[in-house]
Simulated assay, not measured.
Amino acid sequence: MRKFLGLLVAVVISAAAALAVVRLVAPADGDSGVRRQLAYLRAELDSGAAEDAQQLFPEGYFFSYALYGLASVDAGRLDDAWWALSRLESDAGRAPFAGEMPLQYGVFYRGWVNWLRGGILSRVPEAARDAAQVRAFDEDSAAIAAAFDASPTPFLASYPGQAWPVDSTVAIASLRLHDKLRTPAYDVTVIRWLANVQARLDPATQLIPHTADPDTGEPTSGAQGSSQSIINRFLPEIDPELARQQYTRFRTWFLAAPLGLGPTVREHPVGTDGPSNVDSGPLVLGVSLSATVVTIGAAKVHGDESLADGLARFGEVAGLPVYTPGTKRYAFGAAPVGDAFLAWSKSARPWVAAAPEPPSRVLSRWWQLPLLTLLLAVGLAPWLLRSALRRRRSA
């Protein structure tokens, strides 16, 4: 019996290593995988996954529906996207964003909602667009622009007394989307925002900071991977030149391969260490899982297909995907909101900007070699151990 169990363990370990090798070298499943994830997510959302996520972090409910809606737009599932938007505009969707702020509900809530509504409208022929939704898009865009125009800082409050520059970046991108779909009205607002942002970069990295003083816009913490990955997802929609500069710096400061295994994205710049936070999740060797996932989408909208593909393939190994008929989930379905981030990232494409030129730096084609070597060693180890034990017994 012991011999049989030992054989079974060896077979399981080798089979798992072989499966990981296949997932690493095979192309990531792209749109078909996103559709499977969305099918899984819809069932989970219907069963209360967003409410569960709200217990984990302050925007858990919001992101569960917002990212599902955004990925649904890219997948052409507009009914699902409208459904997600309706959940965001409910009392439950607005509840975390109460409090007195110049922009009602704060720039986080207003920016993401405006971006999602505009994205849905962009997929509907102009003559067929719902008049009430078009009016809401126009009114929300006007309110967002007015708040930026009246502010001494480019970084509006997301919560009372708290400002995250990433949230203002999303809101400004929604104004660019408005001007693409409707009569252009906010070019001056965006140009002023760009100038004010470039005057308030993180001194250490020359990247947009993670947090800022809500009254002055001056950085209160340096750049971090969890916000940089989202900022770089949206900057190409706002200004291609600033986007190229910021993305190049982001790649330099945050792309890493700890222990030679990667690619991954750090939460803190290369050469520095810092604590984890609710946005980064637990850090392993300085790597943020959430930043790594979201960077797939950032790389895609920057035309950096080599990095997007590398991150996606690495995720197929490290993310432990599970397939059922018609669905796909990662980490055995332990965190549906994580699947929502991944579906949004893997479905990424520009909504405002033209397709970008690929960056001059690409991910080395040899990045897989250390991980393949490790998987080969894991797969062979049980058999080498069994062989060594047999020789020892016979000696």
Rank of each mutant, 00 (worst) to 15 (best):
V25Q: 13
P58A: 11
G69D: 05
Y61W: 07
A66N: 07
Q37W: 03
E44Y: 01
A84V: 10
D46M: 11
D80G: 08
Y61C: 06
V25F: 05
E59V: 05
F57K: 06
S72G: 09
V73A: 03
V34R: 04
A84S: 15
D79T: 12
A28P: 13
A50Y: 00
S86P: 00
G48F: 04
Q54R: 11
G60N: 13
L78E: 10
D31N: 13
A50S: 08
V73Q: 02
E44Q: 15
D46N: 14
D80N: 12
R35Y: 07
S72M: 06
S64G: 04
F62D: 03
A28F: 04
A75R: 12
G33N: 03
L41R: 10
G60T: 09
R42Y: 09
G60H: 12
D74H: 14
G30H: 08
Y40N: 04
L88D: 03
V25W: 06
D52Q: 14
S86I: 01
L67R: 08
R87D: 04
D46W: 05
Y61D: 04
E59M: 04
A75L: 12
F63W: 08
L41N: 03
D74G: 08
L88V: 03
L85N: 00
Q37N: 12
R87H: 15
A39L: 05
Q55C: 01
G76Y: 10
L85K: 01
L24T: 02
D80W: 13
Q55L: 04
D52M: 05
A26M: 14
S47M: 09
E59N: 11
S32T: 13
S72A: 15
A50P: 02
F62W: 05
L78W: 12
R42H: 15
L24G: 02
L78T: 11
P27D: 10
L56V: 07
S72E: 02
Y61E: 05
L85D: 00
Y40V: 04
F62T: 02
S86R: 12
G30V: 07
R36P: 00
F63Y: 13
D46G: 15
L70P: 00
L88H: 05
A49F: 02
W82K: 08
L41Q: 11
A49R: 07
L67V: 01
A75W: 04
Q55D: 05
E44N: 10
D31E: 15
R42K: 15
D80T: 07
Q37G: 14
L70M: 14
V25G: 10
L56A: 13
W82T: 06
S47K: 13
R36G: 01
S86W: 05
G30D: 13
A84K: 10
L45S: 06
L41T: 04
L78I: 14
L45M: 10
R87T: 02
S47T: 09
L56K: 12
G33P: 01
L56N: 09
L70W: 03
V25R: 10
G69V: 08
L45D: 02
